[in-house]
């Protein structure tokens, strides 16, 4: 029986090297490419006939769009709608990446800290840029909230800075932990199905339920990731 962690192994498909760095096209990169291309093709196909009164295929992406639009509006505010495209891409990429990982023989790139961590760091850089662009020097107030005496600044500033930097880490760990745990559980249950022979029907039934639950978790975690990065972004726009 193979190890339940084997599914998370990154294997180079096309070995490449650039100035001593390993930049091979791996199975993780393949999964990301397939997810991105799939999203683009899906939206292009569903939106090929654009009418004012949407038909069935057009209403699906429109509903998704409006859902995330309202999310940004309530969590970031009206001025946050400028950054809607970033949030929408983030949501689609993570949601479809999670769902793609549930197919047999596929690869869950959202279970890797490197992949999700990059998105979180991107959100952090985006937040800092947006904050500085909108509030100029006032953005430095983030590190020393109003009402705190200047004598305490040497203590408060590092704490606020660490708090700012640790948020992407906690965002990443939540998504990665949820994805990894779900896939390990599916693998172990799958091992039971094979090992128990005819009695394997019982874990098989249980596993079918778990798969449905995992689909729910895949979308829910993408949603939570999006909401939290919205709130995170919103902090940069509003002064406290």
């Amino acid at each position: 029986m193979s190890s339940p962690l084997e599914q998370f192994e990154i294997k180079p498909l096309i070995p490449l090297e650039f100035h001593g760095y390993n930049i091979s096209f791996s199975n993780s990169a393949l999964a990301m490419t397939i997810t991105s291309v799939f999203i683009v093709i899906l939206f292009a196909v569903l939106l090929r006939k654009r009418t004012i009164i949407p038909n069935l295929s057009q209403s699906v992406p429109e509903a998704l769009y409006e859902f995330i639009y309202n999310l940004v509006k309530t969590n970031v505010g009206k001025q946050g709608l400028k950054y809607f495209s970033f949030i929408f891409c983030l949501f689609l990429y993570i949601a479809f990446g999670n769902l793609f990982g549930l197919f047999p023989y596929s690869f869950t790139f959202t279970s890797h800290i490197a992949a999700v961590g990059f998105l979180s760091v991107l959100a952090l850089l985006f937040k800092i840029c947006v904050g500085i662009y909108n509030r100029k020097w006032g953005y430095l107030r983030t590190f020393l909230p109003k009402g705190i005496p200047y004598a305490l600044a040497p203590l408060v500033v590092p704490i606020e800075a660490i708090s700012l930097l640790s948020k992407p880490f906690s965002l990443t760990v939540r998504l990665v932990a949820n994805m990894t745990v779900g896939h390990i559980m599916l693998k172990i249950l799958g091992g039971f199905v094979v090992a128990l022979g005819i009695f394997g029907v019982v874990p098989l039934l249980f596993q079918s339920l778990i798969i449905i639950f995992e689909m729910f978790i895949a979308v829910l975690q993408a949603f939570i990731y999006t909401v939290l990065s919205c709130i995170y972004l919103g902090d940069a726009l509003h002064s406290h």
Binding site: S166, S170, V173
Partner: peptide, 18 residues
């Protein structure tokens, strides 16, 4: 609760790294 435990660990971890 799970979320908050992650938040606490994230703070300590990033502080440690810095």
């Amino acid at each position: 609760g799970f979320q908050m435990s992650i938040e606490l660990i994230a703070g300590v971890f990033i502080g440690f790294c810095i």
